[in-house]
Design a protein around this nucleic acid. Sequence first.
DNA 1: TGATTGGTTAGCCATGAAGCTAACTATACA
DNA 2: TGTATAGTTAGCTTCATGGCTAACCAATCA
Lengths: 128, 128
Amino acid sequence: MANQSPHLDQIFAALADPTRRAIVMRLCAGEASVGELAGPFDMALPSFMKHIHVLETSGLVQSEKSGRVRTCRLSADALVGAEDWFQQQRAIWEARLDRFEAYVMKLKKEKERAGAKRPSRTSKRKGS
Amino acid sequence: MANQSPHLDQIFAALADPTRRAIVMRLCAGEASVGELAGPFDMALPSFMKHIHVLETSGLVQSEKSGRVRTCRLSADALVGAEDWFQQQRAIWEARLDRFEAYVMKLKKEKERAGAKRPSRTSKRKGS
DNA sequence: TGATTGGTTAGCCATGAAGCTAACTATACA
DNA sequence: TGTATAGTTAGCTTCATGGCTAACCAATCA
């Protein structure tokens, strides 16, 4: 119940917006200036800058200004961190499924054995 | 620029909240009633129910009422869908890194060749 | 049947997110 | 030096989110 990384909050919140996911996808293909990034979007620049800022505070994106141009690049660590979360959940989930399956198998075998007993009290069937 | 699944919006938005992530984590370990889920949280039930509802509309959780008890379970599909998104991004990202690395190696080799020429005009060093 | 339990509905409030315009700063180019 | 370019800041609106209380069903159980 502890381990509540405040970072995951921000990362997932950042990725909940289609504009920001598109920015991340674009940056996966390589760094770009704010202007280049903003190009495809029908949105005023200040609004767009807010998205960049959200991505930066989440740690998904880093940027650097040189001259009058700000260049953005993806920071893979944050992405990987979020991906890890899924993998952890899946591990737990799958372990449970395995246990569940084992349990079902056990039930099935018990039933089989019980079923095998009923028709003949004298002989045990060997296998399927 | 198309392919903007509205579902991812809701899934990531759902996971952006620590309470809801905790619920998902809890449900990874097996289904539970609303009351059981709510237990550990210092929150009024109606507030908690909102979280459940958000999880349901995102597709991460399914629930069913029997008698006066509502039982919730995880719906793995949605989780996997979100995980896929990360894997796709990582694939693009890694492909780019590979290309970049190849490029750096090329540069390095060119430099090496140029460097090997400088010290002696008469002999080529073989290797270290 | 009456009380308890488990969940639900309705409605309120405070905060934050996402968009806009207008005006401004600072670099680069002619 | 003057002008265009690339971002930035400030301030506004609107809507969604996350929390609450109070009152309300509807199963169970004594």
